[in-house]
Write a protein that binds this DNA or RNA. Structure first.
Lengths: 153, 153
DNA sequence: TATTGTTATACTCTATAACTATA
DNA sequence: TATAGTTATAGAGTATAACAATA
């Protein structure tokens, strides 16, 4: 078992104060902890985080090309191929020929895809709540707002 | 160039609101952005983030075994071997036989290591400031405090 | 010429397994 | 038996390069 996995289960020793003062460490640990929870919670649904994100974007924003999806997720187009392969393999998404550009595929979420996303979204929201538990409601809102501003600027 | 690298340079399209509401995405992007800045800033000093962290811990907390260092950093002992190999190869850290346990090494930071750390710490602080620029001083303190509570609990 | 999607390949990071030498 | 460190190896994740079809 990895050291980080141990810590995610609360078996870790106390944090080093030297590192606790470094923003990179704080961000890295927070990201790792949340992703560990999310990975475990989404696995029963057969979704990895990137696949969950892709499904979410396609449902919320409608059909789009792989290129467009990749831009939304900020991943390379070769990564998008793998993500879409997975989703199509589980019949959550279909590649359809684009009417406007015969090079491109239009990605459509299947009915099964929508059902799975509904469950996954539910799971994801519980994970977020779980992760944010140490904070009050007001602090949670604040934390999200600060994060959004940091990554939007 | 990767999509995330583009966005780190401000060339990205607007964020997807569907993802901006997901905590995992916010944490992942924040972590990635900060690490990109830190990687680039520390590279001229020949340090990767993990090596910087190791040096920092050893200087602030004194000599310790590789096992102890690994626990502090929350990485596997095989990862620690690689980190220490790097640091020793650049003469920033020395492995010395432990007086108490002949299996173990005691890790000592060299004079050069201290000099490099001083510079690296300076660089790291500037990166943090740069990353946190969108927030006011009070908000920066708040953000750190919230992060610390999230990962300490 | 440039772009969409694809494949093959490579790179980074980190872990697991097996080992040596101690404890 | 268990632990510190090491090596060899493997896996996840994601990128680069080269290519076919199309713009």
């Amino acid at each position: 078992m990895s050291e980080q996995a141990k810590q995610a289960e609360g078996k870790a020793s106390k944090d080093s104060s030297a590192l606790m003062e470094r923003l990179g460490y704080l961000l890295g640990q927070a990201h790792f902890m949340h992703r560990s929870l999310a990975d475990r919670a989404l696995r029963p649904l057969g979704l990895r985080p990137k696949e969950f994100g892709a499904l979410l974007i396609l449902v919320k924003e409608g059909p789009m090309s792989q290129r467009a999806l990749g831009e939304r997720q900020r991943v390379d187009r070769t990564t998008t191929v793998a993500v879409v392969d997975e989703l199509e393999g589980e019949d959550l998404v279909q590649r359809r020929p684009s009417a406007y550009d015969r090079r491109a595929h239009e990605l459509h979420v299947t009915r099964k895809g929508r059902r799975v996303l509904t469950k996954a979204l539910d799971v994801a929201l519980r994970v977020e709540e779980d992760f944010l538990r140490p904070l009050s409601s007001e602090e949670r809102r604040q934390f999200r707002k600060l994060l959004e501003r940091l990554i939007s600027s």
